[in-house]
Design a protein around this nucleic acid. Structure first.
Lengths: 226, 226
DNA sequence: ACCTGCGCTGAGAGAAACCTGAGAGCTGCC
DNA sequence: GGCAGCTCTCAGGTTTCTCTCAGCGCAGGT
């Protein structure tokens, strides 16, 4: 169980860190918002403990940017009682829980365990491939920061291609998986829809992630090495 | 300070009740899950003390249904140490604290006070999405400062959509959740009511937060789409 | 260099999905 | 009983999507 603690009060941070290690957690600590955000983006933590008042970038903004980057690690906010932000704000931003300082260590551990237990599965699972992101819950697709509107069929096709990314899929595979099994038409439909998709996810961005493998099928790849 | 105690062991319940009254609390007691749930839904308590093992409906389910009904009164779970459920489960369901039987009365009171201090106001009592706010308690809806009058069906639909905001919900999902399970009509009703809602929550404000996702369903989003 | 066949694309017919106005049946209230 | 408000059905109209077709371009083979 890996935990990230972002807390600028050194003494408190050290106390919590030792306590958590005693409880069997692996703990990383950063002392300001910017390095906290960086750490949270780069590593797969199970929970992030995020102080609200932080140097360089406050917890409020860290959480916001984290979610914008589609990082859905559960976040437990640590708030000072007299803080200028209230907890409702934290919930709005996607914090999963909060604790008011001073807090009891027992309670902290219990909350962390609760978050870990219910953590990941509740989160929207987004498929990403390079800068392309597909969110099945909201049925939304984005390339970087721009939203892309797709029709039902285009969406189905992209969804399938993303699940099979970096593999060549044949037109008949596509027909089997995206079209109705009873579909009787020729496989030109696939070509047509591949064309539609390219005009939406590649051409506007000057990319070529959806390539033809002549005689074999198509392949979707990332636009930049991950 | 008003407290609801849901506990079936009559002797323990009576002891706790007297003790709390001595401490200046107003105490209601119920002895089973169903009446506990009813009382908790109907009255504005500051804290609910909820036993886990209860006749008719266990504490686990009571808490779950309470949260589903968007009642956010802080709940302190009373668990028997040998119970089949552990404390983490209680946290998962939205319990705010727990106490293992047998507990010291002093500790109980301290925990109750702690819950009351950080309690209710921190909880979202209204559902909000952008400038749209729905208050389940008063069954009222407003867009910004203007009140919006909705019929029962419209309210039910909006309530469901707000709980599933930013997700595409299909017409059949809507029928299952908003209409009577025995409803037999076609799903055109949904289209009609979506239309009614739009005329009340979107059109007058020049917004389009309730969008059609052709072939999939509908999605309610905040009024500031990214 | 020339064929041949695969893949791409614009245009458009047809169908599906959706929206909306009108109104019938109900219920509750005066 | 009569009215008002709500719920739901229906049918016609509108929008949008899906798929077909035909012609063109290009890759790969000879």
């Amino acid at each position: 169980m890996r935990v990230l603690l972002v807390e600028d009060e050194k003494v408190l941070a050290e106390t919590v860190r030792r306590g958590l290690i005693n409880q069997g957690f692996v703990v990383d600590v950063t002392h300001d918002g910017v390095s906290g955000l960086w750490a949270a983006t780069e590593n797969p933590y199970d929970v992030i403990l995020l102080d609200l008042m932080l140097p360089l970038k406050n917890g409020y903004d860290v959480l916001k940017e984290l979610r914008e980057r589609l990082v859905w690690t559960p976040v437990l906010m640590l708030t000072a009682k007299d803080g200028e932000y209230d907890q409702t704000d934290a919930f709005d931003l996607g914090a999963d829980d909060y604790l008011t300082k001073p807090f009891s260590f027992i309670v902290l551990v219990a909350r962390i365990r609760a978050l870990i237990r219910r953590g990941a599965p509740e989160r929207p699972v987004t498929l990403t491939l390079g800068t392309l992101a597909l969110n099945p819950a909201s049925r939304s697709v984005r390339r970087g920061d721009s939203r892309i509107a797709l029709t039902a069929r285009e969406y189905g096709l992209l969804h399938y291609l993303m699940r099979s990314h970096d593999q060549v899929v044949s037109k008949s595979q596509i027909l089997d998986n995206v079209w109705d099994p009873a579909f009787e038409g020729g496989d030109n439909v696939v070509e047509v829809y591949i064309g539609y998709l390219r005009r939406k996810i590649d051409s506007p961005f000057g990319l070529q992630t959806l390539t033809t493998v002549r005689g074999m099928g198509y392949m979707l790849t990332a636009d930049r090495p991950e």
